[in-house]
Design a binder for these strands. Sequence first.
DNA 1: TGAATAGTGTCTTTAAGACAGTATATC
DNA 2: GATATACTGTCTTAAAGACACTATTCA
Lengths: 257, 257
Amino acid sequence: MKQIIRDETILNSDLYLRNVAVDNVIFGYSNKELKVLVQQPFSLDKWTVTGGYIKRTETIEAAAKRIAYERTGLKKLFFEQFRSFGTPARNTDAGFNAEHLSKLTGIKVPVDLWIFDYFVSVGFYTLTEFSKVEIKKGELETDCRWWPVNELPKMMFDHKLIIAEALKALRLHIAHYPIGYELLPEKFTLPEIHNLYETILGRSLDDRNFSKRLISAGILVKLNEKKQIGAHRSPFLYKFDKEKYDEGLKSGVVLAF
Amino acid sequence: MKQIIRDETILNSDLYLRNVAVDNVIFGYSNKELKVLVQQPFSLDKWTVTGGYIKRTETIEAAAKRIAYERTGLKKLFFEQFRSFGTPARNTDAGFNAEHLSKLTGIKVPVDLWIFDYFVSVGFYTLTEFSKVEIKKGELETDCRWWPVNELPKMMFDHKLIIAEALKALRLHIAHYPIGYELLPEKFTLPEIHNLYETILGRSLDDRNFSKRLISAGILVKLNEKKQIGAHRSPFLYKFDKEKYDEGLKSGVVLAF
DNA sequence: TGAATAGTGTCTTTAAGACAGTATATC
DNA sequence: GATATACTGTCTTAAAGACACTATTCA
């Protein structure tokens, strides 16, 4: 916050767009767990999804990618715009005001600073394998971490709704497009991708029917290797047929779970 | 334009949000034709979809509805947000500049007026029966009329893309939710709704399979009346079972064309 | 009775869903 | 051989799609 407040350019709002911002729901998956990257701003007791302002020189997609990069250090992520949110009071919340921020930063924050204005937010969601991410907390936040999608902390503004809508969009997406490239290691087993789908959808899927459909979709390549998993039968490793996977991303309608 | 330029409030941009606006693709259907309401601003040779700025006191949905009402006089329309558009140069176009507008209005328009800024646009689409609409042209436009979706005129900005995306979203929507309530008279025949679906989807649908699915979905009520259509067999009239229709709108997945 | 449109039934193919037993790895 | 996990095949049911003839209205 200090940096932002001190920065004349930003105070004058001629670097960033006004009244419109980006919120980026960063989903992380690993080992049967679906989490969201949330941050706690300004020593408040509530959390937000990652988000930020849009530079006058960049597209909204570029803004979302920049913001995700700042937090995760990752550049190649799967992005999807899912909805925009615009209600006059949507970014009004106890604590997020000039008085409180002045106290926190020691710098006089104008009551009518543009960031307190009515902001329309363009929502994106992002997928990543969270065990690989090194979280980089922003200067403005007291904390930034993964939180299970089913046990979210108290969310600020309308961010609970934003996450719910992102999850709905993700679950709709999974039924029409391949998914998993960003969420699984390069080589993975059928039970691993099966767990991924079950976790995202939040319900169990018959393992026989699941492999049947996934294999007949033709986006998997069976490798001549097995994964060692201890005192159990070793599962075969697979990888995605990237060409068919990308084709499925474009033309859609591959699976219907 | 004159009104806007003269209005101090708007010149100062404290009535409307900056850098964010709404574009509303108003689809009109009647008699096997799907059209879009487009307008020609400022005596330019290009056309735009209807759109406008968002008041600081209203939601983006309310802004879209207000704009649709201003053009069509209709209040109860089907609305759907489909995507937002944000590219720095997206609302840059020959003719849409201070010099040209000054010439047109006779009022000195500042080069840096906020309306020339980078605007992120939230896209909505709307459905209506166009034969019932009395178009009300805005003060800023030289013309405003229905144009067949397949023979659009030269579009300004990125509005060709916006219409294409709206149509894609509409076609996706039609496969998962009931449609037609706003597009058909209260009482309609099976061939009429069949034509509606064919027109929106842009392809033919087997009439036997179509009625089979529509009737088994249970959203139609067959009436004890027939429509007189001249020297031909009289088709039965139907109406929507509004309760089941609305339920289908919420819970979705009714038909799959 | 001819012209135009409404209306309907069956068969085939494909996809979805339910379901359980055998195989393998290690200790 | 005990245990934990991988792997696979068949049957049933439902949905999708292809297809063509009869019925009605009225000029």
